[in-house]
């Protein structure tokens, strides 16, 4: 296998030749994705130490890391990537991105105030995956852990949350999202509720039924949804 330095030089030749920075970043994304799916942490580090990553972290995140997360999410959706690989990629990226790329001043300046929680269920993996994808993409969010309906509404009200991300595993818990939405409305809060988890994947219309504002099928969907909500 060619060394990363050689590979980088090869890609940069294309940039110099006018064939485009996009091509170069796309190549980096493929490299990063392969390294992540094979849990090759040193190879992930090699990509993150490149000047393109350290000089403009947010641009690098948007053009390399977010597409990689999207691809891994799509891979899971299509049955080509396993959840454990999504988890381990997230674990590696979350740590390395926060220590190697982001200092506080590199966080996104314009972002909604967000929180994430597992509603009723004691199953935290989905929440962790979404939280990891968002943090890796430069977002900050509160983690409320496991909450019931009233706790969710109380915390959202206390913290002035704009976007609440709710993860569920069991169908009855997913259905309770409706109560969260109703109680937020009754409290005069206009918080957007984004839902995710197995019941919403198995029934693609369920999020509308429970009155959520959006649903994500994968962790990377959450990044796309939050990007969209952040622009509103």
């Amino acid at each position: 296998m060619a060394s990363l330095a050689g590979y980088t030089r090869l890609c940069q030749v294309h940039v110099v030749d006018g064939k485009g920075e996009d091509y170069f970043l796309e190549s980096l994304a493929r490299r990063l994705e392969t390294a992540l799916l094979s849990l090759d942490e040193p190879a992930v580090r090699e990509v993150l130490v490149l000047p393109e990553a350290s000089s403009s972290p947010l641009k690098f995140v948007d053009q390399v890391i977010v597409p990689v997360l999207e691809d891994i999410g799509k891979g899971w959706e299509d049955g080509k990537v396993a959840l454990s690989q999504v988890y381990m990629s997230g674990r590696i990226l979350e740590t390395l991105v926060s220590t190697m790329l982001f200092q506080t001043h590199h966080r996104r300046e314009s972002q909604p105030k967000m929180a994430i929680a597992t509603l009723i269920d004691y199953h935290f993996l989905g929440k962790r995956l979404v939280s990891s994808a968002l943090k890796t993409s430069g977002y900050e969010l509160f983690d409320y852990g496991r909450v019931d309906v009233d706790e969710a509404v109380g915390l959202v009200s206390r913290d002035g949350i704009d976007v609440l991300l709710l993860s569920t595993l069991m169908l009855p818990s997913a259905l309770r999202t409706h109560d969260v939405k109703l109680k937020l409305k009754a409290a005069g809060l206009r918080t957007k509720v984004v839902v995710g988890g197995a019941p919403f994947r198995l029934d693609p219309t369920l999020w509308k039924e429970v009155g959520a504002d959006a649903a994500g099928r994968t962790a990377s969907d959450a990044v796309e949804i939050v990007n969209r909500l952040a622009q509103k």
């Binding site: 899971w76 049955g79 396993a82 959840l83 454990s84």
Partner: peptide
């Protein structure tokens, strides 16, 4: 299930 862990694992 391959939904959760890859076949090699």
């Amino acid at each position: 299930s391959p939904t959760i862990v890859p076949r090699e694992l």
